[in-house]
Design a binder for these strands. Structure first.
Lengths: 113, 113
DNA sequence: GACTCATGGTTTGTGAAGCAAACTAATTTG
DNA sequence: CAAATTAGTTTGCTTCACAAACCATGAGTC
């Protein structure tokens, strides 16, 4: 037996995108051409360390491009979303939409404080 | 600086619910009073082992109640969602809805095959 | 010039998580 | 009675996410 409706889609969610910290990063990147590391750090509340490691995973997965350069004499890391990243995000969004259709609306029983 | 809109909500998602396998379990349980272990196993495609461990986590978290008995001479494990489980699922659903508002709609650039 | 502090990250360490495979135990079947 | 099925649990392995430590450069400042 298989799961009814589109609920089974939930098992196919892309874990690289599904992780909250990375989903946040991707969503921010989707709204800009290029974003600095430090901006993302402030925006997300992630520590530099965690941001760095999530960034590397997204880069390895090909969802994000990382460009390292210098601003004056200081290092500057900028991130941008790739075409594959946009596709992955769109696919994730779509699967999520189907999953949400199957989740029950809050009822009177669940609404009480 | 904080993240704009409701995007920051993504970092507050309940990890116990966010895990796909458990979300699937909760969604199924939300649609029935009581469900047998074996039914859930078939429905989800999870191995008994994985199902057992996710079940334990949900039980420990108080989102699910587990009732062990016998059917004839064989063990029978039945799961049901608790009130806390329904609330957690509803809260998750709601946060997810806010996150999805912020995710970009697929555009022409991402739509091509 | 030696110290300290800030900037911009990367590396390392650790506890927890998810999954597959092995195991337990009872029962039914050949 | 041996083999296979049912119904789960336990164990072991690999990966993960996060925090803390670390590294390198630059800018005061005494």
């Amino acid at each position: 037996m298989k799961t009814p409706g589109h609920l089974g889609e939930v098992m196919a969610l892309d874990r690289l995108v599904h992780e909250p910290a990375r989903l946040l990063i991707l969503a921010v990147l989707a709204g800009a051409k290029q974003v600095e590391f430090g901006f993302l750090e402030n925006m997300s509340g992630l520590s530099k360390g965690n941001l760095s490691s999530h960034m590397s995973k997204l880069e390895t997965g090909g969802l994000v491009a990382v460009k390292k350069s210098f601003r004056g004499k200081r290092p500057l890391t900028e991130l941008s979303i790739t075409a594959a990243g946009r596709r992955a995000l769109a696919a994730y969004r779509q699967q999520l939409a189907m999953v949400m259709q199957e989740l029950p609306e809050p009822t009177a029983a669940t609404k009480r404080k």
